[in-house]
Design a protein around this nucleic acid. Structure first.
Lengths: 128, 128
DNA sequence: ATTTATGCAAACTATTTGCATTGCC
DNA sequence: GGCAATGCAAATAGTTTGCATAAAT
């Protein structure tokens, strides 16, 4: 069944995404992890992020401006990416499951979806 | 106002996205363009895709699996990416403008959004 | 004439992979 | 003990940039 091994590195990667709580990228996870465990390699971070997302323990919320972000909150919700500071915010709106709203996709297996808003966040608008 | 110059390359890039009609990537545009104009460089394709999207003449529909796709259909619509063949399909559903559904984002300027579905397309399900 | 755009090559960023070694189960 | 996971370095994919030259206005 579960032929995945429960390594220290895997725990560290999972915990980093949770503790950072910023829709972290692989790079951010890596920087966080090596503070306490300096020998962990970046390849291991990438491998574990992919596997954890595959296993449903983390959520790959998509690629924004060339970089993939992960979320420890796996239930359906949405995101906003600031075009200036590139921070990712949660969007608290509730929509009906959009998979049910789609017509004319017979024969397709829709596994999920991402809804990503973009624009300028409060902080960046104030500064301008 | 418009200090952009109307070069042959820019026309070729725009036309390629339209004629390909497959939510093309820079690579696909490049391959298409050099069939008729073999000296056009990939950097020029990238530069023009960015500029055309910036100008609103093309739509950057987001980065799927590490690659940015462009659409000549600039009015609001949605997409489905097949995880297997990685083709991008239009999703014909009509939703109300989701920007109006969002609460608790005061002070944010929401410029737009992408709604991207993913899963397996008809062709790939048949083959399996 | 001016100044943006091009082509080329090199640089850069994000990510993946091969492989010998380590360490979970 | 066996096999999945790691660390390292090198490879790859997508994209951007510097610069001399070409071409649009």
């Amino acid at each position: 069944m579960d032929n995945k091994r429960n390594t220290i590195q895997r725990q560290l990667v999972y915990n980093a995404v949770e503790e950072l709580n910023i829709h972290a990228t692989a790079e951010q996870v890596y920087e966080y992890v090596i503070k306490s465990h300096p020998t962990v390699s970046k390849a291991t971070v990438y491998r574990n992020l992919s596997q954890l997302a595959e296993a449903g323990e983390l959520l790959n919320i998509g690629n924004f401006f060339g970089t993939t972000h992960y979320d420890h909150n796996c239930h359906e919700h949405y995101h906003f990416m600031c075009e200036q500071c590139r921070r990712v915010y949660d969007v608290p709106a509730i929509f009906p499951d959009m998979r049910n709203e789609i017509a004319d996709m017979d024969g397709f297996e829709i596994k999920g979806y991402n809804l990503n808003f973009h624009g300028l966040c409060r902080d960046c608008l104030v500064v301008q």
